[in-house]
């Protein structure tokens, strides 16, 4: 299972998604899977590679509420790139967060706005998890990431 990171720096250093692990690699891996069991085992493996957010950051102001699980988000701007600190109390959502981060993390804000996460999830046959009715916070999280990126673009 993932370790709880003591602080943001530790999380950013330990999170491979968006830096060492890109969306294209995940898409390649998924191509090998025949059935749902393989896909979900892989998603749960990804969730184990995602470090756990520092407890101090799991504060009410960082929550994106979903009906069924909680998602927390904070972000940092560094050297013209946006880095996100993201977590959830549900393992599958954590795995999906890893996938989202592989496409949207550690990038300039303008690139984030150009990226199409819906396409990525459709390719992985996980689009149902992005459905607005799902209430797992994933869609709201992607919208929040875009909003943060948009704000960042406006500021520069």
């Amino acid at each position: 299972m993932s370790e709880v990171m003591p602080d943001t720096e530790a999380y950013l250093a330990a999170n491979p998604f968006g830096t060492e692990v890109q969306a294209s690699e995940i898409v390649e891996n998924f191509a090998f899977f025949d059935d749902w069991e393989d896909r979900y085992r892989f998603i749960l493996d990804l969730s184990k590679q995602l470090p756990e957010m520092p407890d101090a950051l799991k504060a009410p102001e960082h929550i994106i509420h979903g009906c069924q699980s909680q998602v927390w988000i904070t972000h940092h701007s560094r050297d013209g790139r946006l880095y996100f600190v993201l977590d959830s109390d549900a393992h599958i959502v954590r795995g999906l967060i890893a996938i989202v981060l592989s496409a949207l993390n550690a990038r300039p804000a303008a690139d984030i706005l150009k990226a199409d996460v819906d396409d990525l999830f459709a390719e992985l046959d996980l689009i149902r998890h992005l459905s607005p009715t799902r209430g797992n916070g994933l869609r709201a999280m992607v919208a929040r990431i875009r909003k943060i990126a948009a704000t960042e673009c406006e500021a520069h």
Binding site: Y40, C67, Q68, S69, A90, H91, V93
Partner: peptide, 22 residues
């Protein structure tokens, strides 16, 4: 070891409809 939502999702993959949450 599983959040209710994780269990609900994995059951759903097996055609089993339950509800997970509050």
């Amino acid at each position: 070891g599983g959040h209710p939502q994780d269990v609900g999702t994995l059951l759903d993959q097996q055609g089993i409809a339950v509800r997970a949450g509050h």
